[in-house]
Lab assay of single mutants.
Amino acid sequence: LKGVVVAGGVLAGAVAVASFFLRNKRR
């Protein structure tokens, strides 16, 4: 169960970083 929580956190972080980079590329 702990691994699932960690994986979810990593996935959420990756999505946040990806969206951040996409926003920067638009400018």
Rank of each mutant, 00 (worst) to 15 (best):
V10R: 06
K2F: 07
K2C: 07
K25Y: 14
G8F: 06
G8Q: 07
L1V: 05
V17S: 01
S19T: 10
V17M: 15
N24V: 14
A14M: 15
K2P: 13
L11G: 01
S19A: 13
G8W: 13
K2L: 10
R26E: 10
A18H: 03
G8A: 08
G8R: 03
L22Y: 05
V5G: 08
N24L: 12
A14F: 06
R23Q: 06
F20R: 06
F20E: 02
N24R: 13
L11M: 13
F21S: 01
A14C: 15
L1Y: 03
G8D: 04
V4P: 02
V5C: 11
K2V: 09
A12S: 07
V5S: 08
L11Y: 07
G9A: 08
G3C: 08
S19M: 15
V10E: 01
A7Y: 15
G9Q: 07
K2T: 06
V10F: 13
V6M: 15
A7H: 13
G3N: 12
G9D: 04
G13W: 12
A14K: 03
F21L: 11
L22P: 00
G3H: 10
L22G: 02
G9F: 05
R27K: 14
G3W: 13
A7P: 03
A14L: 11
G9E: 05
V17P: 00
R23I: 15
V10I: 11
S19C: 13
R26W: 11
K2Y: 06
L11N: 00
A16H: 07
R26P: 15
A18F: 05
V17D: 00
A16N: 02
L22I: 13
R23F: 08
V4R: 11
A18C: 12
V15Q: 02
G9W: 03
L11K: 01
R23P: 01
V10C: 10
A7S: 10
V4C: 09
A12P: 02
L11Q: 00
R23S: 06
V6F: 03
V17E: 00
G9V: 07
K25V: 13
G9Y: 03
A7Q: 10
L11E: 00
L11P: 00
V5N: 03
K2S: 09
G3S: 06
V5R: 08
V4S: 10
A18S: 03
F20D: 00
L22F: 10
G9R: 05
R27T: 15
A16K: 06
V10N: 04
V4F: 09
V4D: 02
R26A: 13
V6Y: 10
V10T: 05
G13V: 09
A18V: 15
G9S: 12
F21W: 13
A16V: 04
G8T: 12
L22D: 01
R27L: 11
S19Y: 08
F20I: 15
V5W: 05
F21G: 01
S19L: 14
R26T: 12
G13C: 07
V5Y: 00
F21V: 10
A16Y: 06
A18N: 00
G13M: 06
V6P: 01
K2Q: 08
L1N: 05
L22E: 01
G13H: 07
G3K: 12
V15A: 14
V10P: 02
A12Y: 13
G3T: 12
G13I: 08
A12W: 14
R27V: 11
A12K: 05
V6E: 03
L11H: 01
L11V: 14
A18Y: 09
V15C: 15
V4E: 03
V15M: 14
S19H: 15
N24I: 13
N24T: 08
F20L: 09
G3M: 15
R27A: 13
S19R: 08
R26N: 15
G8I: 14
A18W: 13
A18M: 06
S19F: 03
V17T: 04
G3L: 14
G13L: 11
F21I: 10
V5H: 02
R26V: 09
A18T: 10
A12T: 11
V17K: 01
R27I: 11
K25T: 12
L22T: 02
A16Q: 06
G9C: 06
V6H: 04
R26H: 14
R27D: 05
V5I: 11
V5L: 04
G13E: 04
V4I: 05
F21E: 00
V4T: 10
R27E: 08
G3Y: 14
V5P: 01
L11R: 01
G3E: 07
F21N: 01
A12N: 02
S19V: 14
G3A: 09
R27S: 13
K2E: 01
L22S: 02
N24S: 12
L1Q: 01
V10M: 09
A7V: 13
A16I: 04
A18L: 11
V5A: 12
K2R: 11
A14E: 00
V15H: 05
R27M: 12
L1H: 15
V5T: 09
A7W: 05
K25W: 13
L22R: 05
F21K: 01
F21M: 00
R23G: 05
V10K: 05
A18E: 00
V5K: 06
L1A: 08
A16L: 03
F20G: 03
A16D: 00
G8P: 03
A7G: 11
A7D: 02
K2D: 02
G3I: 09
L22A: 04
A16E: 02
G3V: 10
V15R: 05
A12D: 01
K25F: 15
V17H: 01
F21Q: 02
V6N: 04
V6Q: 08
R23D: 02
V15K: 04
V17C: 07
A12L: 04
N24K: 14
L22C: 06
A16F: 05
K25L: 15
R26G: 14
